[in-house]
């Protein structure tokens, strides 16, 4: 169940931006939009931390910062360990009466590289220990900061510089790791997926993630025009298609109980509304090679995988 928090678009627009303009992210960078949206949903004093990656690099070029809240970066694989230390310090210092705030929320932002791959150990450990923090995975599906290399979050068939569209091997041969399900398997209080195209849903999930006691994990799809070879003006349209094709369904799992979120429920109740993956893929240059006759079968495999995972999800949500 997402947060009871009620808001209007106007109220959100009027809320001060805590992730401010002036950062150096590319035009059309959805990860930057996601950061801005997440901070629109905070409920009080908050400390944030990022793993190394595009968002850390573009938002804090010394002596500038885009962050209006306290923020720290340590390394690539450490976002969840950062949050563990922060949350623990807040707890004990509060107990010892050395900080005034009644409560301070902690948000860790990690890219897909910092989450699916190099940071998964720290994340798993932090969640197992039960620290009270929200982890936001902004998933642009590759290591963008270092120039578009594949990660465990890169989807099947996608071109990256380390999974090139070769003559023999057309992009990434492996599937995307089901990271959010892996987090649910940790039996943590709250796991959800979100898309900046459905921003009210995203905001409510952020708020919910902060409200629950203990760790919360929010997996947000975040198109990167540079790495996806897509039109910078289409990042939100692409994040909408990700949901409408069921490539990236929106759901939440509270104490392990899955439920579909409204934008994806539509697709479940009215399957004719579900679009084909082709519509999604064709907007992104990183899949262009798959439209050659010799590699079209990969598109078939992508569609099959999407269908399979979608049906599995419907089962978990008790929708048949």
């Amino acid at each position: 169940m997402s947060s009871e928090w009620k808001f209007t678009a106007k109220e959100i627009a009027e809320r001060t931006d805590l992730f401010m303009s002036g950062h150096r992210a590319c035009a059309g960078c959805a990860p930057a939009t996601v950061h801005r949206l997440v901070l629109k949903a905070i409920r009080g004093p908050t400390i944030a931390t990022n793993s190394t990656g595009c968002m850390e690099v573009t938002s804090t070029i010394y002596p500038f910062t885009a962050w209006k809240i306290p923020w720290i970066h340590t390394a690539f694989e450490t976002a969840a360990a950062n949050a563990s230390g922060i949350e623990t310090a807040l707890k004990v210092l509060k107990r010892k009466d050395r900080i005034e705030h009644e409560h301070v929320d902690v948000i860790a932002f990690g890219g897909d590289g910092g989450t699916f791959d190099i940071g998964i150990q720290a994340l798993s450990g932090a969640v197992e220990r039960g620290h009270d923090f929200l982890y936001v995975l902004y998933d642009n599906e590759a290591y963008m900061n270092t120039g578009i290399q594949r990660s465990g979050g890169t989807p099947l068939g996608a071109w990256t510089t380390t999974s090139p569209a070769g003559r023999r091997i057309p992009g990434k041969p492996q599937l995307k790791k089901p990271i959010a399900d892996i987090m649910v398997a940790h039996e943590m209080p709250y796991v959800a997926t979100a898309s900046p195209a459905f921003w009210t849903d995203l905001l409510r999930k952020v708020r919910r993630g902060l409200e629950v006691d203990g760790p919360a994990f929010l997996h947000v799809i975040a198109p990167c025009p540079r790495g996806w070879r897509s039109d910078p003006s289409k990042s939100i349209a692409i994040s909408r298609l990700a949901v409408e094709t069921c490539t990236f369904p929106l759901w939440e799992a509270t104490d392990g109980e899955y439920s579909l979120s409204a934008p994806s429920k539509v697709m479940a109740l009215r399957p004719e509304r579900k679009k084909t993956v082709t519509e999604y893929l064709k907007m992104q240059g990183r899949f262009r090679h798959l439209f050659k006759p010799e590699f079209e079968h990969v598109i078939g495999r992508i569609q099959e995988t999407v269908n399979k995972r979608w049906h599995k999800l419907l089962g978990k949500c008790n929708i048949s």
């Binding site: 004093p45 908050t46 400390i47 850390e56 690099v57 804090t60 070029i61 010394y62 910062t65 962050w67 209006k68 809240i69 306290p70 923020w71 720290i72 970066h73 340590t74 922060i86 900080i99 005034e100 705030h101 301070v104």
Partner: peptide, 13 residues
Amino acid sequence: LDPENPITIGPLD
């Protein structure tokens, strides 16, 4: 790191 007086620690430098 104090919400009353936000600062950025560990930036790109």
